[in-house]
Structures are given as C-alpha cells and as structure tokens.
C-alpha cells in the first residue's frame, strides 16, 4: 500500500517534470507555436492545454493498464501530439494492434477457409 502510494507520488512528480519541461520558458511567452497556428487557420479549437493535460494523464494510465511500465508510458505519451492523444483516449482497446503471424499461422489457415465461406454467403446475400 505504502509503496503503491509513493509510486503514485513519483508518477505525479514525473508528470510535473514533464509539464515544466514542455511548456515554453518565460522568454518565449507570446510566441505562437506552429501546430497552434495551423489549428487557428483551420478554425479548430486551440489553446486547450488544460483539457489535453488531463487526457494525457488518462492515456498514460491506460497504457500502464495494458502492461506498459509507468516511466516508459510517460515517455511514450511525450512523443504523441495532442490530436493523437485525443484519438487514443478511451479507444486504445478498439484500435488495431498489429501483432504478427507466428502464433496464428495455424489459425490463419482456418480463418482463410472461413473467409472463403463467408465470401460465398456474402455473395449469395446480394442476390
């Protein structure tokens, strides 16, 4: 319990560090960043850092729940853009996760067979 608590505190410390590191220093205050300018041109919502910061935490948490190491999850969300965070949030379980063919080689045969069968029924249903 205790270690879980300190783990969480460590996590928040990391998030805070990340937040400080990514916000532009004071000398740059007022400089409009390129993605923001593009968003403004395209009449998208801009300057929603607050809600996005919350979504980032959510996505990070979802990555951790899917077995990613918490510190690594933080690094992974750091290279995702705001738009990508929004796409991932709450949809991680439904998005395609390319796995591979090693374990499914046997299955693929069966599946391809089914594919043909399903193809047959599909074609019939059109008539």
């Amino acid at each position: 319990m205790n270690s879980k608590l300190t783990g969480k505190a460590g996590l928040y410390a990391l998030i805070l560090q990340f937040a400080i590191a990514t916000f532009p220093p004071m000398a740059l205050a007022g400089l409009i960043q390129t993605p923001e300018a593009i968003a403004t041109q395209q009449h998208e919502l801009s300057r929603q850092q607050l809600s996005e910061a919350v979504a980032r935490e959510d996505v990070q948490q979802q990555l951790v729940e899917l077995g990613v190491d918490p510190a690594m999850a933080l690094e992974r969300i750091a290279v995702l853009t705001d738009a990508e965070i929004a796409q991932l949030n709450h949809r991680i379980d439904n998005l395609p996760a390319g796995a591979g063919v090693l374990e499914v080689i046997g299955v693929v045969f069966v599946v391809l067979l089914i594919l043909e069968l399903v193809g047959v029924t599909n074609i019939f249903s059109k008539f």
Binding site: L66, G67, E75, L80, Q87, D93
Partner: peptide
C-alpha cells in the same frame, strides 16, 4: 516504446 503487452501488438499511432 511501441509494444502493448496486454494487446500483444502495437498501435499505428
């Protein structure tokens, strides 16, 4: 950086 253990795969994003 890209593998999701519980999904046994990687996301495009």
């Amino acid at each position: 950086a890209v593998y999701l253990p519980a999904r046994q795969g990687s996301l495009q994003l």
